[in-house]
Structure formats: C-alpha cells, structure tokens
Computed example of a mutant assay.
Amino acid sequence: MTLKVRRSAKRLDDREVVMERVSQLAARDEAPIVIDLLYGLPYQTLDVFEQDLKDYMETGAHGVDLYQLVVSGSAPMLNLVEKGRSEPPASSAEKAAMYEMGVNFMNKHFVKQLSVNHWARDNRERSQYNSVAKTFAEVMPLGAGAGGNIGGYGMMHHRTLDAYMEAMRTGKTTIAMMSKQSRYEPVLASLKAGFDSGVVRRSLLVNFEGEDTFDLLLPLFKIWQQNGLVELHDDYLVLTVAGAFWCVTLAQGAIAAINTLIKDKPVMPKGMTMGHGKTMPTHKDNKANNNAA
C-alpha cells in the first residue's frame, strides 16, 4: 500500500518494514502466516490494490483474506472526509472491481480459494476456524472481544482489554453479553456456512420444520440467478464472482426469507459480516477495535 493508503487506515509502519517482517515470519516455517488485506480504502486505486496482491505473493505468506472495507457510525475516517482531510473510501462499484481483480489474480497464480474471501498458497493455511465458526459448532471464546457459542448460548467477552483484565483480576465473569439462541439457529447457521463457502449444498442445509430448506428458498434463488448472482445446478447454488462479493447480503436475504416462515419470530442473528468485510471503528470503539482494519 502507498503511504497515503496506510495512513488512512492508521497504519504507521512503512511498506518495507511490513514486507520484511511478514517475509521473516513466513520463512520460519513454524506456523501458517495469513495476511488480512483490505480493499476499498481511501486513495487505494486498482493499481495500488494490484501491487498489494503482488506484495502478498512476494512475502511468501501462506494465505490471504480479502476483506472489503465497511465504514459505519462515526468512524474517524468519515470525520476526516467531512473535514476535507481525506478522500472518501471506495464506492461499492469500485470495491466490486477490486474484489474481481483479487479473484482473477488468485486464479492466475493458482492460489487455492477456501471461501468467498479466503485463499491459501499451500496446506498450512486451511481456514478451519473461519469455516467452523459459520456453522453451529461450539466455539469456546478466549480473550478480550472474543465471541463463541456453547450449549445453545451465544456469548461475547468484554470488548476492551482493560475491562477484560479487570474482570480477570477481581474474579468476576469476563462475559459481557450472553443470549439464548433460537431453536432455528442450526438452520440459519447452515445457510451462513454455505454462502461463506461459495456453494450452498442442499444436503448440508438443515431442514426447516421438516421441509427442505433448499426447496423453500428456490424461488429466491431463481431471482438471483436471473440477476447473475448465482448459478443453480440441481442440488447446488453456486455463487458467481458478483454473488461472492455480495455474499453477506445474499445470506441475510435468505435468512430474512426463512424468518418470514417462523411463527415465534426469533431475533435476527447478529454478526453477519462472516469475515467478508472489516468495519472501521467508531470513535467510541476505537480502542477496542484498533486492529479492525
């Protein structure tokens, strides 16, 4: 990334420093080294993003995640834009072009795609957590800001390190939020997992009230196919490149459709980013999310 792009994301190290450090870590061959590469930042043109992709290859890192920038609330970045001190982040159309470039780049260099936004150069990177976390598997949360799912209850630890450590020191619970999940969560989780993988498989969808979930959603799937977002192949819904870019929106749409059939109306599941985007922190949450970008 250029200096302007890095500064817009509050990244202070020079490109050469980052490149050298990542290369050193990857060369140790002791653990999979995976890069989170944002696209859609201010000043990040297609040419700049193409260089970012080439830099990933040069470092020898074992995997890469392509995350589109999502700016919300009163993020400092928006404040800078309003004051004329920064260019605005990329539009959806510009980010879509970057995502397409990323997909084509990975295909050109035979980097294996693991999900809609995860790629691996070799078998050291398997993106197991990202894949399992989208299912209804139990996940034990560890550390500040960690979220998990145990025994049908979703939970999240204190988001700031100070609050988390204070709870540890005083012997209080580190859990800041906990809620009982809907009995339909397995159905919704199987949908999220399918969309995240890029292929929704009939055989892996949990039935809804004894009915085939794939069939229930088929009218919606057909509309998406007409708009070039998916391809239907008997028992499979395959996301196109455009569909992969809009993966989160499609998953939310499918879940919203299922929710219309639920009589007891559970709360819409939270945390639908599915690893496909990174949200820039608001001023209030800046300390808790200083690595969000």
Rank of each mutant, 00 (worst) to 15 (best):
V103E: 10
G148F: 01
I258Q: 03
T173L: 04
R15D: 10
K180M: 07
E50Y: 07
L205M: 15
L239K: 08
L205R: 13
Y153E: 12
M140Y: 14
R201V: 09
L66T: 01
M101Q: 15
E20G: 00
M178Y: 10
F136Y: 11
Q68G: 06
A9Q: 15
V111S: 09
K270Q: 13
A133K: 09
D264I: 06
K287A: 12
T170E: 13
T273V: 07
T59A: 07
G228N: 04
Y153R: 14
G228S: 06
H158C: 05
V18D: 04
I258F: 03
V81C: 07
R28D: 04
M140I: 14
M101T: 13
A75S: 15
V187D: 03
N104W: 05
V81W: 06
K83N: 03
K270E: 12
V248A: 14
S8Q: 08
D212G: 03
N289A: 11
T249H: 12
A144P: 14
K287T: 09
Q24H: 09
F221H: 02
M168D: 07
H157V: 01
G154W: 03
A242V: 08
V200E: 08
P219H: 05
L161N: 08
G63N: 08
V241H: 12
G253V: 02
R183G: 11
S127P: 02
I223P: 00
G152F: 05
N227W: 01
P186E: 05
A193E: 08
D212L: 02
L12A: 10
D55H: 03
R202Q: 15
F195G: 06
V230Q: 05
P42A: 07
V206E: 15
I258N: 02
G154C: 03
W224P: 00
A293Y: 13
G147C: 01
A75W: 07
G152M: 09
V187H: 06
I33M: 01
A251Y: 00
L239A: 11
M177W: 12
R11E: 08
F214H: 06
L53P: 09
G210T: 09
L114M: 13
D215Y: 09
C247F: 00
A292Y: 10
A193F: 05
T249S: 12
M57V: 12
A293V: 11
G271N: 14
G271S: 10
N107I: 11
L46G: 12
N289Y: 15
A9N: 13
A256H: 13
A256W: 11
A292V: 01
S127K: 00
G271E: 05
G277H: 13
M165S: 12
G253K: 01
T170M: 10
S72W: 05
M168V: 15
G277C: 13
F214G: 07
M98Q: 15
L239S: 10
K287E: 12
Y153L: 06
L217W: 10
G253R: 02
M155Q: 08
G147I: 00
M178H: 10
K287F: 11
V70Y: 08
S127V: 11
P281I: 11
D55L: 11
S190G: 05
K4P: 14
A90T: 00
I255S: 02
W246F: 15
F208V: 07
F110I: 12
T2H: 11
D36S: 02
A146R: 03
